[in-house]
């Protein structure tokens, strides 16, 4: 059933990178990027070339519209990374992916506050906007940080349900009350952006504290019909150094969470569960 390709193949065949020998790149002329604007904004960005070098500040002036987001601005800046002093610099490195505030990638400090850059509208701010990498995490480059610690903490608290295997069981489906599911749903929306960790005075590279988001996952999994089988072990894992008692009750976490997850409620519930567990450990079930 082979047919001919449509006979529209243009003649030019000097193709580059066609898994054939590479052709030398040649220079040519092209027009520059047009920039239409209704307004402009100043960005002051804290930069750092790599994990070991010193941070420094650069300032940029960009055309913008009020309804644009910080992520949109950073994307524009890649195109023409020219500072306010007219110096062309390397594009600012930053993380982003979904741009719908659900993947959790683009958390940074905006005017000092941990936020998702993709849902921060320019019109919310007056004057110059300051952007810094998310605090509390090691810097990779510019606005990119290494959040792998967060995922190590999820391992530490066993933030999973131990399935015997991902096969069919022929058992009737689980039943859960709509109310319980609605409460669990609040915690299941955590996208591990790290905003709560950045805001937490107890959380940083030099301390053991697992942080609010991790504790909320313990709360969530301990309330699942199968997850509760390992409730005791998870509680024990947050009853040591770096666990629940390291929370200083500053309540910053719940104020900065972009998903408005009731983190402090989870921590409160866990406090009661841990107390109860202590009694059980002392006196038996």
């Amino acid at each position: 059933m082979t047919t001919q390709p449509p006979d529209v193949v243009p003649e030019s065949a000097d193709l580059i990178l066609n898994r054939d020998p590479l052709l030398a790149f040649e220079l040519g002329n092209d027009d520059s990027l047009p920039a239409s604007s209704i307004d402009q904004i100043d960005l002051k960005i804290r930069r750092q070339d790599d994990p070991f070098s010193k941070p420094y500040w650069q300032q940029f002036r960009l055309p913008c519209q009020g309804k644009e987001t910080i992520t949109a601005l950073l994307r524009k800046l890649r195109n023409q990374p020219v500072t306010i002093d007219g110096e062309t610099v390397d594009p600012v490195a930053f993380d982003h992916n979904c741009m719908e505030e659900v993947c959790g990638a683009c958390a940074i400090l905006i005017n000092g506050k941990p936020r998702m850059a993709c849902s921060a509208l320019i019109e919310e701010f007056n004057g110059m906007i300051t952007l810094e990498p998310l605090s509390k995490f090691p810097i990779i480059r510019d606005l990119i940080v290494d959040r792998s610690r967060m995922f190590a903490h999820l391992k530490r608290v066993k933030a999973w349900i131990t399935l015997d295997g991902t096969w069919e069981t022929q058992q009737p489906p689980l039943r859960m009350s709509p109310h319980d599911v609605a409460v669990n749903y609040l915690y299941s929306r955590c996208m591990y952006c790290g905003c709560c960790m950045a805001a937490c005075p107890q959380y940083d590279e030099n301390q053991e504290f697992v942080g609010p988001a991790t504790l909320a996952q313990v709360r969530l999994l301990n309330h699942h019909p199968l997850g509760q089988y390992e409730k005791t072990e998870r509680l024990h894992r947050i009853m040591t150094v770096g666990g629940l008692s390291d929370c200083g009750n500053a309540q910053n976490c719940v104020r900065v969470c972009p998903k408005e997850i009731p983190l402090t409620t989870a921590i409160g519930e866990l406090g009661r569960a841990v107390t109860w567990q202590l009694f059980k450990d002392l006196f038996g079930d």
């Binding site: 349900i161 399935l163 689980l174 039943r175 859960m176």
Partner: peptide
């Protein structure tokens, strides 16, 4: 049902299904 066992918070009917 496997997703449910893994912990997905599927929305429920009043009967818990």
């Amino acid at each position: 049902y496997i997703f449910e066992r893994m912990g997905v918070a599927f929305s429920r009917t009043p009967e818990g299904l």
